[in-house]
Design a binder for these strands. Structure first.
Lengths: 229, 229
DNA sequence: CACTTGACGACCGACCGTCGGTCTGTAAAA
DNA sequence: TTTTACAGACCGACGGTCGGTCGTCAAGTG
């Protein structure tokens, strides 16, 4: 095999790209290091020069994903003209927008990540995104607390709880995915949508807001994401 | 090696006992099938006669744990004289009591299960207990809804959210465990206790109750469990 | 009733393939 | 020449398989 030398950062990202594609296609456990290096044509030694273990791939991928997720909402976070509720709703709206924009890719990843044998992968991604989003959401809630609109004793705790609510949608989403292609698909999407609305209400209540203050989903959102190809 | 034949159920439980002890001592990944069979003196073939894969051990263990957890609160669930709030609080009180009773064992298991490399183990146990508790809690909340004390649109969704709140304590508990033995231990326990109180408030609010209706922790509970030897 | 027989299923343990990871060496870059 | 990036043969451990063996127990036999 001819030897090709690249700049470390490029090579590292190349490896992460390949690994991410494979993980989202077959899952973490069912993807081997050999699969990854075969895809981009490097050797074992080359791989372990950049990563100290297969586990490191997960860290690298989740870190990248989380980082650029937060990068895409930075402007909202730094806009001083927004009050806390507007900032929070803007943040959520932007998140939805991003999801709808690459709904097909997202949906394809969902198909794999939400399979029971890939729980690890799901939780790793989730944990990474929570880690990145926690200070962000904590800041918003703290602002709301000083503004007197959010009634919470501890902004950070509230942020953690709300972020973890996402994880409790796992089963509901998994059920919807399982129903894809069956006669129950429509009903499953409807059920998921209603479930997500209730999560919005739960967030309202945790923050001490009247029900409906935070539109967690908007009409058609759930269907748009879940039926994307 | 002499051959000892036992009744299948006994042998199966013997294997599960050994595996459970090892998993709670070293974690799932760091325990090998050979470790398990060595501990009770059976062969590979014997093991795979009762279990089709190492993964099956997790299923078996979590199923057992969850099942006898629900068995220990059955009387409360079937007592027709209790209204929903009393039933819920009784349920939580019983759960705390059970935790305090075998706090030392619990704490020892925590030390292992809450380590980052054992996230899988943690989530499996959690998922199993949620699966068992979901119908139970759903029933209680549904009762409360018909009684007009809980203001929730969908009891099952509420149950899932509340049960998943437990998972969001993971990081807080892990932080406290990490602080054990350091100068911050006391402060960490205090912080965890406060965090847990807020979870109680979150449950109040999700169910549409006034803050403080559900004592999620009681004075000294957190410390009792976290300092147990 | 004592004894043999035979089938079934619990159990044995040598063996295998795979996979994550290591190590020595080498070509390219600095 | 030194350092860095990569090659690829190799290793040990682990999950899992497979043909075979031995205990158990019920039915048959005298």
């Amino acid at each position: 095999m001819p030897r090709v030398v690249k700049r470390p950062d490029d090579r590292r990202n190349e490896i992460l790209d390949a690994a991410q594609a494979l993980f989202f296609e077959r899952g973490y456990e069912r993807t081997t290091v050999n699969d990854v290096i075969a895809q981009i044509g490097i050797s074992k030694g080359g791989f372990y020069h950049h990563f100290s273990a297969k586990e490191d791939l997960l860290e690298g991928i989740t870190a990248r994903l989380a980082q650029d997720a937060v990068a895409r909402v930075r402007d909202l976070l730094e806009d001083p003209s927004l009050d806390a509720l507007a900032r929070l709703n803007g943040f959520l709206a932007r998140s939805r927008q991003m999801k709808v924009e690459d709904a097909p890719k997202l949906r394809a990843a969902f198909d794999v990540v939400f399979r029971p044998e890939n729980l690890v992968l799901y939780h790793r991604i989730n944990a990474a995104s929570i880690a990145v989003m926690r200070p962000v959401l904590t800041g918003i809630i703290a602002q709301g607390k000083t503004e007197g609109v959010f009634a919470v004793p501890d902004p950070e705790a509230a942020a953690e709880i709300i972020l973890h609510l996402g994880a409790s949608t796992h089963d509901a989403v998994a059920r919807t995915i399982a129903a894809t292609g069956t006669a129950d698909e429509d009903a499953a999407i409807e059920a998921l949508d209603q479930r997500l609305r209730f999560y919005g209400v739960a967030v309202d209540r945790i923050l001490g807001l009247p029900d409906g203050s935070i539109p967690f989903v908007e009409p058609g959102f759930t269907r748009a994401v879940m039926t994307a190809r």
